[in-house]
Design a protein around this nucleic acid. Structure first.
Lengths: 222, 222
DNA sequence: GGCCAGATGAAATCAAGCTGAAAGCACAGA
DNA sequence: TCTGTGCTTTCAGCTTGATTTCATCTGGCC
């Protein structure tokens, strides 16, 4: 799950990043509006956290530009607590959620997870697919027979991405991009290795190989 | 267990702070309504003591604002003895308990401990979990076989936090935030050290490590 | 058969967490 | 004030588990 954090306050970034990582996001940071806008246009993020008080280019403008380029990711906007007028403008510009500063990190994480699931057309509180249920809080997957299986961080991120996109063929490039952070060395068979481990845990038949194209997770419908 | 004390009477603060510390709270103090409101929004407190007679911003307003920001901590309000109308307003604003001045420190402590347990879904008078029972008065833990074990202050605060949140994965950051007071240096392995000592005392198997995520106390259910 | 994408098992590397000991500190009692 | 005691904090080396790399195997497809 790739997340773009556009925030210039280095201290806040330092506080947020580990918490977001722990919640299973691969986090890229931009510390100004121009870089942020560029990265949002270039990379396929799953969700974006955007501070409105940015140097170089106002957050609202960045958001408006993303939307005019039809970037699909949901955006959560950080505002000063009482700036209600920013919220009105922000909604017009296409924000999906708001959080006033200061805030609890846990609340931010909870809202982001809800956003991601909502934007993938899932009910906001749980992720069930293909008879499996993901337990975010415990980083586990629950099998149809009720057994709960602990997953490592990478296994969990990969499986979640599959479950958010059931029935779609996902290329190795795409999987790498979403499971790892920017600038990851793409010349390796990491995805193959982790696909194998996932199959070991949740059953070989759940992830199909499409030679030359990618992998496909069999969801409820597919 | 982190506590925020919002009180402008320096003498009362000086009297209360050590007593609250002794009861196992990590205490932050705000001596006016504005700072108090900010700190309550900013830090993850487990309980708050709020004096209604505050300079700069009325206590009731502070409380109402916290609640409108959906801060979850329970609040105990200090009022003048006969100001019953304040209590009515206070309940409306979301207070959880009251104490009229002057009061005995012990009563305050007892009410706070009850509040904390109630808000964690525990019976208000005792804290039992996973076969262990905490003895607040003696700062001991009683094992299933009846043996009582003395704990140091930090060990006690840590164990209590675990027992208030059984079955949840608690990150090191979160544990640090709740066991220590504000501005604690987060770059140390203190939590690991104390986890180890706790395990030595109550049994290794009671606290599970979830690598990269945190620790988990196995309660009665979990 | 020969080639290629993917699968597999094992080894190497890396980082998180564990541990024992020692240093630092605060407080009580001489 | 000095000293001893117990608690807290730091530190360095060790262990364990997760990630990553690598060499080799398998099976589809020309």
């Amino acid at each position: 799950m790739r997340l773009l954090l556009v925030e210039d306050d280095a201290e806040l970034v330092a506080r947020l990043k580990p918490a977001l990582r722990r919640a299973g996001f691969a986090v890229d940071v931009a510390d100004n509006g121009i870089d942020g806008e560029f990265m949002g246009d270039e990379e396929p993020y799953d969700v974006v956290v955007l501070d409105l008080g940015l140097p170089q280019r106002p957050g609202l403008e960045v958001l408006a530009n993303w939307r005019s380029h039809e970037n699909p990711f949901p955006v959560l906007v950080l505002t000063a607590r009482d700036a209600w007028h920013e919220r009105v403008d922000g909604f017009k510009a296409g924000a999906d959620d708001y959080l006033g500063k200061p805030f609890h990190v846990e609340e931010l994480v909870a809202r982001l997870l809800a956003l991601v699931r909502r934007s993938a057309g899932q009910p906001a509180h749980e992720l069930k697919q293909g008879g499996l249920q993901l337990d975010e809080a415990h980083q586990q997957v629950v099998l149809p027979d009720g057994r709960a299986i602990d997953l490592t961080g990478t296994e969990f991120r990969l499986l979640r991405y599959f479950m958010l996109h059931p029935g779609q063929i996902l290329s190795k490039t795409r999987l790498t991009e979403h499971v790892y952070e920017q600038d990851f060395d793409r010349d390796s068979n990491l995805i193959e290795v982790y696909i194998r481990r996932l199959r070991e845990r949740i059953g070989k038949e759940r992830i199909e190989t499409r030679r030359g194209q990618g992998y496909l997770f069999r969801g409820d419908a597919g």
